[in-house]
C-alpha cells in the first residue's frame, strides 16, 4: 500500500500526526463514512477522509493547508460512525499545532482570527467576554455592523448588557500564568 512505502521524510509526517493525535490513521479504511457525516464538508472543504489520505500519502504541505481541520467544529460525529473509531478533531488539533509551529500561513484567516481573539480575551480576563470578542472580530474583518440589529434587540431585552462591552476585564493571574507556562512549553509537549 502507498502509505507503507514512501521516503522516510514522508513517513515521518504521518507518524508524527499519528503520535500527536493519538489516532491510528493507519487503520483508516478510506470508507468515507466520516466525510459523509461531517457537517462542514462541502465542495470546497473536502472533509476528513481525503485529509487522512493526504496525511498517509505524506502530502504534508497539502495537509497543513487543508481547510477541513480549520472548519472542524469537533462535533464528534465522525468519531462515532467510523468503523475503526478515528476521532478527527484530535487530528485537527495535531495539524493546527504543527502548522503553527512551522509557520504555515492559515488557509482560513477568518477562523484563525476568531480563535485568536477569543483566546486573547481569555488570557486577559480568565473568562471570555463574548461580546467584546465578537465586536473585535467584526471590526477586524471590516464588517462592523454585522448582526447589529439582533445585537441591539438582545440588549434592549436585557439578554446582554452594554457593560459586557464597556467594562475592562478583571485579570485572573492564575489563568494568565497558565497561558505563559503553556507558551513556554510549546514544542516541549508534542515532541
Amino acid at each position: 500500500m502507498l502509505r507503507l512505502t514512501g521516503s522516510p521524510t514522508e513517513r515521518a509526517f504521518s507518524q508524527e500526526i499519528i503520535r500527536m493525535s493519538g489516532q491510528d490513521l493507519l487503520e483508516c479504511l478510506q470508507c468515507g463514512k466520516c466525510t459523509g457525516s461531517c457537517p462542514i464538508a462541502s465542495k470546497t472543504v473536502t472533509g476528513p477522509r481525503r485529509l487522512i489520505a493526504k496525511i498517509l500519502a505524506g502530502m504534508k504541505e497539502e495537509a497543513l493547508k487543508d481547510p477541513t481541520w480549520w472548519y472542524c467544529v469537533s462535533c464528534g460525529t465522525c468519531a462515532g460512525r467510523c468503523p475503526v473509531e478515528i476521532n478527527m478533531y484530535e487530528v485537527s488539533t495535531a495539524l493546527c499545532e504543527m502548522a503553527e509551529a512551522q509557520g504555515v500561513k492559515p488557509s482560513e484567516p477568518h477562523i484563525h482570527l476568531f480563535e485568536t481573539l477569543f483566546l486573547d480575551s481569555v488570557k486577559k480576563g480568565g473568562r471570555v467576554r463574548e461580546l467584546k470578542a465578537v465586536m473585535a472580530f467584526n471590526i477586524r474583518t471590516m464588517n462592523p455592523f454585522k448582526d447589529m440589529v439582533p445585537g441591539m434587540k438582545l440588549m434592549l431585552r436585557g439578554a446582554v448588557s452594554p457593560k459586557d462591552l464597556m467594562e475592562k476585564e478583571k485579570p485572573d493571574p492564575a489563568v494568565a500564568r497558565i497561558f505563559e507556562r503553556a507558551e513556554e512549553r510549546k514544542g516541549g509537549h508534542g515532541k
Binding site: M20, W69, C72, V73, S74, Y89, S92, T93, A94, C96, E97, E100, F114, E115, T116, F118, L119, V122, G126, R127, V128, D172, A174, V175, I178, F179, R181, A182, R185, K186, H189, G190
Partner: peptide, 19 residues
C-alpha cells in the same frame, strides 16, 4: 475560568487540557 472552548481545543492541546 474559561475552559478554552473550541479555540483552545483546536489550537493547543496542552493549554486546552490545562484550562
Amino acid at each position: 475560568s474559561c475552559c478554552g472552548s473550541s479555540p483552545a481545543l483546536k489550537t493547543d492541546k496542552l493549554l486546552s487540557t490545562a484550562l
